[in-house]
Design a protein around this nucleic acid. Structure first.
Lengths: 180, 180
DNA sequence: TTTACTGTACCAACCAGACGGTTTATTATT
DNA sequence: AATAATAAACCGTCTGGTTGGTACAGTAAA
């Protein structure tokens, strides 16, 4: 796969995420994605052999991006919990906040497509449990982080932007206290 | 509205939740719900004038049920945080674990249908903030509770049933410590 | 008590449009 | 020329919604 194909694929995925965010996670149709991305339907199906393949790719990109960001922060010396919180905060801040919509699109299409996400969650939990010595407070922080993310994804967050900001800062402080 | 109509409506909603859970939140079609519920499509549309009305009713039921359970626990003397944790735990335990799928079905159909959920979240946060004196630890517990719920709904929970059980117990202990 | 009428609850058949996916043809890139 | 990429027309199926109608309970006049 050359570079051009990669760019095109990324554009298609981005358009699909956009459709999911604006019209609803279940409205990600090939026709609509084609219209928004500017490519033809045939073009989409050249790069992704089926709608399911497209959504699988969306989920994979989300998992990979998140994990990459986390690994980068780990390499910088952050602990597992802090890295997770920062990585999530970063995803939320991104203009491309739509990335998370991959989860809803997958849930709408076929629940099984979320398996990679579950695996990633398991890895993360393991990391945090290992590093915190199975401290339930650490798990609580991880969950709270997830919840902020889910709330944003569903647009049901009861927090203002600055409330969320403060919360995330508080969580990072707690994360530092918790980890040795 | 007659009693018979109420029962029928409830059956239709349950069938819709079932479809969402088994086939995917975006696969809640009138045809499928008709097949699963045993009524005809015309029958569905007699009780719910449109698919959107059906999903709205699903969401409303979820919000109402959750709030009712919470109010009951509050009346029994639990504090706002404990009541929320217990109420969520109860929803998860229910054989009707599908209730939460209303959220995903709404997200799939049209994001705006989740507005009642956001309002409920806001009320809840207000309650907890008031009662805890704006203690961020309380907010964290609330969020963790939400996350457990979201994870179950998406079938991406990294916890075993007993891990979740232990966590919920830990959370209830923390909730009691936090509230005066 | 029969009759006629009304409103509720439901259904089978149908429709126009949208759906995922295929095919075939055409254009860029190498 | 060979291959990668895109477009457009098309197919069978499914979609949400409409239609006209049936079954039946109540009810009120005869």
């Amino acid at each position: 796969m050359n570079k051009r194909a990669k760019v095109t694929k990324a554009q298609i995925i981005e358009a699909a995420l956009c459709v999911a965010a604006e019209k609803g996670a279940g409205k990600v149709t090939l026709d609509e994605v084609a219209k928004v991305s500017g490519f033809s339907k045939g073009g989409l199906l050249y790069h992704f052999p089926s709608k399911e393949a497209l959504i699988t790719a969306m989920v994979q990109q989300l998992v990979d991006d998140t994990e990459a960001g986390r690994q980068q922060l780990l390499a910088q010396g952050d602990n597992a919990l802090t890295a997770m919180i920062k990585a999530h905060a970063r995803l939320t801040e991104q203009v491309q906040g739509n990335t998370a919509m991959a989860i809803l699109a997958a849930a709408a299409e076929q629940p099984g497509l979320l398996n990679p996400v579950q695996q990633a969650c398991q890895f993360l939990l393991q990391d945090i449990n290992t590093e915190s010595g199975d401290n339930p407070e650490a798990v609580l922080l991880m969950l709270a982080c997830d919840a902020l993310w889910f709330q944003d994804m569903l647009s049901i967050s009861p927090f203002t932007a600055q409330q969320k900001e403060q919360l995330l800062q508080y969580m990072q402080r707690r994360a530092k206290e918790l980890m040795p």
